[in-house]
Structure formats: structure tokens, C-alpha cells
């Protein structure tokens, strides 16, 4: 048995709005083993980024527990959390807005080393920064340039170098490649996978793109309106998707292949409903083609159907 590095129990994050509480993250239970990757997939507004931020306590959870290495970090005070954060980091989606435009590459990468690790010695900083630049594949000629002089792929490499600089064990990757071109996207995904192997990193990989998450994840959870509707090992989820929403997501991805006849596109109706004070029952029900009366009566249990394959749907009991 591998030990989970990070675990959540009934994690909730609600936001107060004029119309009532917005259930961004609603009763989420996840476990990520050391050295593994959990992919979180969902469409915009499903709460996947909020989940990532809440797990790191970048926003305070409404209720529930977050266990990091067996210890509940929701009870940590500011000082304890600061220490814990050196083990838990995040890579942001947009490499254009997550880097300070007035800092050169050297300072950007050195900043977390100075601030969090407290290393101020110039020589030591230099060795560390150049080592990191090499690790993420940035030429050392770029050490004095500003972020605006670089393309998206290189900027994202800076973001990764910053994250790695303090040697975390757990990294939340929040859509790290969605702002990049396909050929560059593949370079960054490969880099993230190499780093994971070298350093035994644990990832929570958040994305809206199922095809990206397949390569990098051991396990994948599909989110819809604040809840996880299905979790399975990566292979299993793609070969045997059980929840109608997962099936619809898979069917909606355009495949880059030649078809003799034009493919008939399967379309799910409607759009995501509001996450403010949601009604009981399955949240996907209004768009689901298999919807039955019992779907909207009470909340659907999230149960283990086969080994490591969990789903919340009345079709599977």
C-alpha cells in the first residue's frame, strides 16, 4: 500500500453571494499517493481551480479536513502554514500574468529562495538559480531578460523553476499548458513528467482538457458543479467511463483523424446550471439524457463500483 501524501475529507468551500451561498467545492474527498498524479477535469465554473487553491489553503476552507502527510493543515496557524507551504506549491495557468513584469529572470527565480528558504548568500543563490534554469530547460543567456521578452513556453518554464526552487513535495498544476501552443504544450508536459520521476513529486493536475490529463495522471477525477462525479484510474476512465457526464466530455473532444463519413456529433443539451444554492440530487440531471425521477429526489451516493472506480450516478448502484 502506498501512503497518501495529501487527503481531503468532506472538503467544502462556499462563497457568500447576494443570492445565497455559492457551492464552489462541495464535499470533496480525494487522496493522492506520494509520487503520483491526480488529474482533476471539468469545465469552467465547476470549482476545479477553487479546489486546488483550497487544498493549499490559499483560500480558507468552509469546512472539512485537509491532511498533508497525515497532519490536518486546516488547524495550522499562520506561522505553521508558512512552513508547510514550502512543501506545497502551485503552478499557475497564465504565464503572462503570473510573473512580475519588472523583474528579470534571475530575480524571479531567486525570489522564493530568498523569501521562503531564507538564503541570501549571493554565490549560493547564483548556483541554485543556474541549476534550476538548467533543470527546466532555460538557456543561461536568458538570466537578465524580462518576462515580456520571452514566449509563453519559456515563461511557463520560469513559473516551474520558481515552484521547484524551494523543493516542494506536492504541486498543484492549475491548467499549466492551456495558454500554450500544441507543440510547446507537449514540451512542457514532458518536462513536468520528467521532473516528477527525478524528484518523486506529487501532482494535482487541474485541466479542462481530457486528452492532456490522460498522459500525466495515474488517477482522474471528473468534477461537475463543485462535486466529483467519477474517479478512476486513467486507463479505466477512458476505456470504461460510467457517468453520463464523463461520457459526454469524452465524446465532445474533436479527434484529429480522417473519417470516411462525417462523424455525427453527440451533443449534450444546455449549459452548466448555477452553483448558487443547488437543488438536491444529481447536478448534471438537467442536461442528462438518461435522467429519471429519482435523480432529483436526493443527493446521489458516490460509491465504489469496481476497484478504484468511483461514480455518483443512479444508473450505477
Amino acid at each position: 500500500m502506498s501512503i497518501p501524501l495529501i487527503e481531503t475529507h468532506n472538503l467544502k468551500k462556499y462563497f457568500k453571494t447576494k443570492a445565497g451561498y455559492l457551492h464552489a467545492v462541495d464535499d470533496i474527498n480525494i487522496q493522492i499517493n506520494k509520487g503520483e498524479t491526480l488529474g482533476i477535469v471539468g469545465e469552467s465554473g465547476c470549482g476545479k481551480s477553487t479546489l486546488g487553491r483550497t487544498v493549499l489553503r490559499l483560500s480558507a476552507p468552509t469546512s472539512g479536513q485537509i491532511l498533508f502527510d497525515g497532519k490536518d493543515i486546516t488547524k495550522y496557524n499562520h506561522k505553521q502554514m508558512k512552513i508547510a507551504k514550502s512543501d506545497m506549491q502551485i503552478i499557475f495557468q497564465d504565464p503572462f500574468s503570473s510573473l512580475d513584469p519588472r523583474m528579470i529572470v534571475f530575480d524571479l527565480i531567486a525570489e522564493p529562495i530568498k523569501e521562503i528558504l531564507g538564503i541570501k548568500n549571493k554565490k549560493e543563490l547564483e548556483t541554485k538559480v543556474f541549476k534550476l534554469m538548467e533543470t527546466v530547460g532555460l538557456s543561461d543567456k536568458l538570466v537578465n531578460v524580462y518576462p515580456h521578452e520571452l514566449d509563453g513556453g519559456r515563461r511557463q518554464r520560469i513559473g516551474i523553476a520558481r515552484t521547484l526552487s524551494i523543493d516542494p513535495q506536492f504541486i498543484v498544476c492549475d491548467e499549466p499548458v492551456s495558454a500554450l501552443d500544441v507543440s510547446i504544450q507537449a514540451q512542457i508536459l514532458n518536462l513536468l513528467m520528467d521532473l516528477q520521476q527525478e524528484r518523486n513529486l506529487t501532482y494535482m493536475f487541474i485541466t479542462h482538457d481530457l486528452s492532456v490529463v490522460k498522459h500525466i495522471s495515474n488517477k482522474i477525477s471528473v468534477m461537475y458543479l463543485g462535486q466529483i462525479v467519477e474517479t478512476a484510474m486513467s486507463e479505466e476512465l477512458f476505456s470504461n467511463p460510467l457517468h453520463p457526464y464523463t461520457q459526454a466530455l469524452l465524446a465532445a473532444i474533436p479527434r484529429a483523424k480522417y473519417y470516411e463519413k462525417k462523424k455525427v456529433r453527440e451533443i449534450i443539451r444546455g449549459e452548466v446550471t448555477s452553483p448558487i444554492e443547488p437543488k438536491p440530487g444529481c447536478r448534471f440531471a438537467p442536461r442528462c439524457k438518461y435522467v429519471k425521477a429519482e435523480c432529483t429526489l436526493a443527493d446521489i451516493d458516490y460509491i465504489e463500483i469496481s476497484k478504484d472506480h468511483y461514480v455518483a450516478c443512479v444508473l450505477h448502484k
Binding site: S183, I184, A186, Q187, N190, S211, K214, R255
Partner: peptide, 23 residues
């Protein structure tokens, strides 16, 4: 060829993506 290969293909089981090197 590079563009097609660098796409993650959800119907196959390859491990690494074949990225196009450089910019």
C-alpha cells in the same frame, strides 16, 4: 507530422508526447 504527433491522443496509450523541439 510533428503537429499531429504532439497532440495527446486520447485513443492511444503512449506515455510521452513527441514534442517538436525549439521555437
Amino acid at each position: 507530422v510533428g503537429l499531429i504527433n504532439s497532440l495527446p491522443d486520447i485513443d492511444s496509450n503512449q506515455d510521452r508526447l513527441k514534442a517538436i523541439p525549439g521555437l
